[in-house]
Structures are given as structure tokens and as C-alpha cells.
């Protein structure tokens, strides 16, 4: 699941380019998005595009942290193989 972690960091990094990987992993998503709601909408779109998983902005705020989003995506991957993982198998 290291690959999922890297892909999610890349999603965050594309929207919040000044944050490092460690800052992203440790960061509080709610505070990031509350500061810039446009970034939140973009992050939702990037995650949808990358993982094929629809989370709306409210859902993202409820999940709240990088780790929680990661776990959510992992749960989704159990019910259906994530598109990019399918390609690598």
C-alpha cells in the first residue's frame, strides 16, 4: 500500500505545492481546506481522477486527516480494485 500512499501524497502536493510529504502526511486536512475552499474542490477532483473514488467536499472534511482519507481509499480498494493498481498487476 506504499503505492497508494505515494499517489495520495502526489494528489495533495499538486494542490498544496509548498507542503512537503511529511507535512502532508501529518497535516490537518480540515484546516487546509478551510483556508482555501477552492483548493478543497480541486483536491476532491484530483482524488477522483487519480483513484476513481468520489468523495465530496463535506466527506473530505469529515475524514479530516491524510491518514483517514488513506484508510477510506483502502476500504474502497477492497470492494473494487483501484484503476491504477489494476494496471500494475
Amino acid at each position: 500500500m506504499a503505492e497508494l500512499d505515494d499517489r495520495l501524497v502526489r494528489c495533495f502536493s499538486s494542490v498544496f505545492p509548498t507542503l512537503t510529504g511529511d507535512e502532508i502526511r501529518a497535516g490537518d486536512v480540515t484546516s487546509l481546506i478551510n483556508v482555501d475552499s477552492l483548493a478543497g474542490v480541486t483536491l476532491v477532483a484530483v482524488i477522483d481522477e487519480e483513484f476513481g473514488v468520489e468523495i465530496d467536499l463535506e466527506g473530505l472534511l469529515e475524514l479530516g486527516t491524510f491518514q483517514a482519507i488513506q484508510q477510506h481509499l483502502r476500504r474502497q480498494s477492497r470492494s473494487s480494485v483501484l484503476p491504477n493498481e489494476q494496471e500494475t498487476k
Binding site: C11, S14, V15, P17, T42, A45, V46, E49, E50
Partner: peptide
């Protein structure tokens, strides 16, 4: 081009 690529291009 997908959105993540677009955002990365704009970081350059």
C-alpha cells in the same frame, strides 16, 4: 492532460 498533470505544469 489530466488535472494533476496540469497542476504540476503550473508549479514549474
Amino acid at each position: 492532460m489530466n488535472l494533476i498533470e496540469a497542476l504540476e505544469i503550473l508549479k514549474q
